[in-house]
Design a protein around this nucleic acid. Structure first.
Length: 580
RNA sequence: GCGCCCUUAGCUCAGUUGGAUAGAGCAGCCGCCUUCUAAGCGGCAGGUCGUUGGUUCGAAUCCAACAGGGCGCGCCA
């Protein structure tokens, strides 16, 4: 239950009982947590946004609405404040009920039906199949994966997809690079890897495998005899490696789509024919880009997409001079494919260096879906690797790692995942190899995990202290929750009870990082309550001689653990029950 | 030259889709362990929300212009 959504509905009901003009637009009415806790639990702007259309002074409208709201059984006080805010204070039993909700739901707390199981497509990673994944890929992978989980939690039917760019010139380069490794595996002295080929050692095993498959059959054969089959083999080998890397990071996809597959099955031709049928393809000559010197610029006719008709700055080429499709053309086909598979809503996660590509892709989606589809692109900024507060220079020669796999091996997948989500996608992120393993307040992974572990520590003590008591979630939910009356306890419950709202707003904004900040808030609230027990022994969780109160507090502690676990589940991070 | 992103405390960053007196952490200063993990907590101090206009009951948030930083700019993906 998103309690703010609930009270917004209640406010609109209350409004309908007032003598207001018919057809009043209540779309701008909000019910939100007030910034200041002292202002109450729920604040609404209704009187301010409706005063003009209702032809009333904000104050008068507020008085009338407040009178209605005072009759709500969960409302204990209504105040009018500032320019016309109405602040609601809720009865304590309302919060006890929310605590019960949490315990009954466990880690499914926060699940929402906001999405109504509407399909939504999230494409992420889509790293070129030419080598192992690097740190930069990891951020997009984690953001995409967590966003997909978040949307699923918010009630969308999510498809997680990976687009394999296996059709361009780069995979020919890959095939040639592997051919060289193949010759090397046959005993040839290959010397330095020539400029323009992929030098990485990771290609050696593939070369060796090709020897077991083919012997020396292609050692001196002309490229035309082996290129296609080596390319296929190489892409498969690289995708196996990437899938392993993704698995190490705990990232999963439902659908892998091959660009080459789209091209060879004629779906790119078909898509572009379709686009042409809509009148959005023409032969034309582009102006040279201004302000940028291109020495080899020659005006020439090209096959262009009329992207300017859909908000782009210039029309975009679809064919290369050799007649083959550009990457953009096959990407159009891929997005049309997604749309036709039933995804009017699509999200792509890209690196920030592809920012210049966003408008044209959105234009293409608009065109090809004939206005029925929408694409949101989340751009991921760079990750700066740090160590001990200093930039960490990666160097293969020095043996300092470069790959995602090495990073995961060094700090663990959960740490990588959590840290990648502690910043907005479009902000630079410092990833400090030392700090992320520190057990301190400024390491958010630790801080949140520690709160969860602390909860479990208390629960373990509760098992002993309350020997014989049933500490299952169901029993705790049915327990004497009304005993939780201290403001410090209630404020923790209030933080927990705001989780459903946070899930919905983060999902709506496509911003999984908000979950990280929320978890930090939950952890802080819990650590704070814990320490209050140091000053005031009456606030400790286990109170000797008052089993009832202790049970109620066990319920609160378990609910904190549940909500943290619920949030970490969105991130694909395992909650820890002990920190040792 | 054009487009997109960014600019909030000394540092790193949030800011609930336009709300009330702009918030955290770190660094600094002052406190809190005979106690369920002090691996933590509380307090003090710290601000022209890049600048200037505009929109309205109300702007860090929306619009315009400008400044600074980043990314990109016809057949790479």
């Amino acid at each position: 239950m998103n309690l703010f959504k609930y009270f917004r509905e209640e406010i609109i009901v209350a409004l309908s009982r007032l003598n207001l003009p018919d057809g009043l637009d209540t779309g701008k009415v909000t019910a939100e947590p007030p910034r200041e806790e002292a202002h109450g639990d729920v604040a609404t702007n209704a009187a301010m946004v409706l005063s003009k259309p209702a032809g009333m002074k904000p104050r008068d409208l507020a008085e009338a609405l407040a009178a209605q709201l005072r009759t709500h059984p969960a409302v204990t006080a209504v105040e009018i404040a500032g320019p016309g805010f109405i602040n609601l204070r809720l009865v304590e039993s309302f919060w006890a009920e929310r605590l019960g909700d949490i315990l009954r739901a466990g880690t499914t707390y926060g699940d929402s039906d906001m999405g109504g199981q509407r399909p939504i497509n999230v494409e992420y990673v889509s790293a070129n199949p030419t080598g192992p994944m690097h740190i930069g890929h990891a951020r997009g992978a984690v953001i995409g994966d967590a966003l997909a989980s978040l949307l699923a939690k918010a009630g969308f039917a999510v498809s997680r997809e990976y687009y394999i760019n296996d059709a361009g010139a780069q995979v020919d380069v890959l095939a040639r690079s592997i051919h060289l490794r193949y010759r090397e595996a046959l005993g040839e002295e290959i010397g330095d890897i020539p400029e323009g080929l992929y030098p990485g050692d990771y290609l050696k095993p593939a070369g060796a495998q090709l020897v077991t498959l083919h012997g020396d059959k292609y050692q001196t054969a002309p490229e035309s005899e082996w290129l296609a089959s080596f390319r296929l083999f190489a892409v498969d080998a690289m995708m196996d490696m990437i899938r392993d890397d993704l698995a190490a990071l705990g990232v999963k996809h439902d659908v892998f789509t091959s660009e080459r597959g789209l091209v060879e099955s004629g779906r790119v031709d078909a898509a572009l024919e379709f686009l042409a049928g809509l009148g959005q393809v023409y032969e034309g000559v582009l102006e040279p880009p201004k302000g940028k010197v291109l020495d080899d610029w020659e005006p020439r006719p090209q096959t262009l997409f009329r992207a300017t008709a859909f908000g782009d700055d210039v029309d975009r080429p679809l064919k290369k001079s050799d007649g083959s499709w550009t990457y953009f053309a096959s990407d159009i086909a891929y997005h049309l494919d997604k749309f036709r598979r039933g995804f009017p809503e699509m999200i792509d996660i890209w690196g920030a260096d592809h920012g210049g590509y966003v408008k044209r892709m959105q234009a293409a989606v608009k065109a090809v879906s004939e206005g029925g589809g929408a694409l949101d692109v989340k751009l991921c900024q760079m990750v700066n690797l740090m160590k001990g507060g200093q930039p960490f220079k990666m160097s293969k020669r020095a043996g300092t790692f470069v790959t995602l796999r090495d990073l995961v091996d060094q700090v663990g997948k959960d740490v990588v995942r959590f840290i990648m989500l502690t910043r907005k996608n479009d902000a630079h992120l410092d990833f400090d190899l030392d700090k992320v393993l520190e057990q301190s307040r400024d390491n958010p992974v630790f801080y949140v995990q520690y709160a969860h572990a602390r909860c479990h520590s208390v629960l373990r003590h509760g098992v002993t202290a309350l020997a014989g008591a049933d500490l299952s979630a169901a029993a705790l939910a049915a327990g004497p929750l009304a005993r939780l009356t201290d403001p410090a306890e209630l404020s923790v419950i209030k933080v927990l009870a705001s989780w459903p709202r946070l899930v919905e707003s983060a999902a709506e904004a496509h911003e999984p990082h908000r979950v990280a900040f929320y978890l930090n808030d939950v952890a802080a609230a819990f650590h704070g309550l814990w320490n209050k027990g140091k000053d005031d022994t009456q606030l400790r969780f286990l109170i000797e001689g008052d089993a009832e109160l202790s049970l109620a507090r066990m319920a609160l502690v378990r609910a904190v653990a549940d909500v943290i676990a619920s949030g970490l589940a969105v991130f694909g991070v395992e909650p820890m029950e002990e920190m040792r």
